[in-house]
Design a protein around this nucleic acid. Sequence first.
DNA 1: TTTTAATGAATGAATATTCGTTCAGTTAAA
DNA 2: TTTAACTGAACGAATATTCATTCATTAAAA
Lengths: 191, 191
Amino acid sequence: MPKTEEQCKQMREDMKSKILKMSSVYFAKNGFGDTKIGDLAKHIGIGQGTIYLYFKSKEELFEEIRKAADNEEEVSKLKMLSKLPIPAKTKINKISEEIVKRLSDDAEYAVKITIRTQLMLENEDLYSDRVYKVLETIIKQGQKEKSIVKGDPTYLADLYWGTVFLSALKMLYINECKLITKETLNRLLEA
Amino acid sequence: MPKTEEQCKQMREDMKSKILKMSSVYFAKNGFGDTKIGDLAKHIGIGQGTIYLYFKSKEELFEEIRKAADNEEEVSKLKMLSKLPIPAKTKINKISEEIVKRLSDDAEYAVKITIRTQLMLENEDLYSDRVYKVLETIIKQGQKEKSIVKGDPTYLADLYWGTVFLSALKMLYINECKLITKETLNRLLEA
DNA sequence: TTTTAATGAATGAATATTCGTTCAGTTAAA
DNA sequence: TTTAACTGAACGAATATTCATTCATTAAAA
């Protein structure tokens, strides 16, 4: 079928990312157990067997989705931001801005957030996630600067990420839902 | 085993509610597909077959859990509250207080909130749930009174219930997690 | 014609459900 | 009081069903 080695490779990559992309929404919405390979294939518009040309098993497919959701780059970006010599309030605003922007123009971002959060809830040990820790640091800084509301930083970080999680969930389920604003996110932490 | 008709009935009811209670946590945490009847029975500490003496099918068991989560009484309580001639701020405070109280002393309440919210997300038509509507009314009142922050009431109600949902989720998954405070809930809406 | 991707019916492992048996307790006859 | 017969709940092995995975076949490109 493929013209050249190159094109062949390209086609395989396209199909693989198509499967990944469409499956991730399915898994995020329905969870692992409620996602049936048959339904999934129908939803993607391919045969059941095709999935197995690209992934060894349902488990492996899900594993790849997990990996994609766990974005190392995002964490390091956050870490850098947290170390800059600027007010905590500005940092929070930057984070809120980035999240809202990504949610609005990358549909997959909502899936990533959803899957990541579900994983965190399921593995209590993972719960104190790296992303969490960074936000906590910034909150502590902000409390010293009196620009962030008083209270347990872990708890406040929770409130913040929780709200982000919810917006992601809603985007996943509800068509044309109103996106959260950065003002709302900021207000959660403002003193 | 049973002495009288009465006692027999009592025993059946006890067992049924035991199954319901213990299953609901399982289902809320793992979802329908990932809940295996075998595991569930082991977790409850009964034989697999026993479940089928009380429920026709896994599906029906889940259905009953759903029903239990959908608490009509709670809605009418809220409706009454919303109509009282008192400031919106007071109403919100009462609601927050009640939620925090119930979350802290009725472990099943977290399950109910979780299941109910999942149902709402899955059925877009149910999303504008009665409970939502009532809170929206109160928010509108509060905005007139200038005690509630400006913004789309639906959106604000969302933020509020979302935060409640999250706390419930955390209680379900995380042992000894810090419970949300009524102050935090109130702050979400305060002007 | 050969090669490769895609397919979906066939397979079997996992899991929901059924059903014959056990067991604990009660009743009532001896 | 003892014992035999009865009751219905509980059990879990056996069976039915579902669903992930495989593979023989088709279709299409080279």
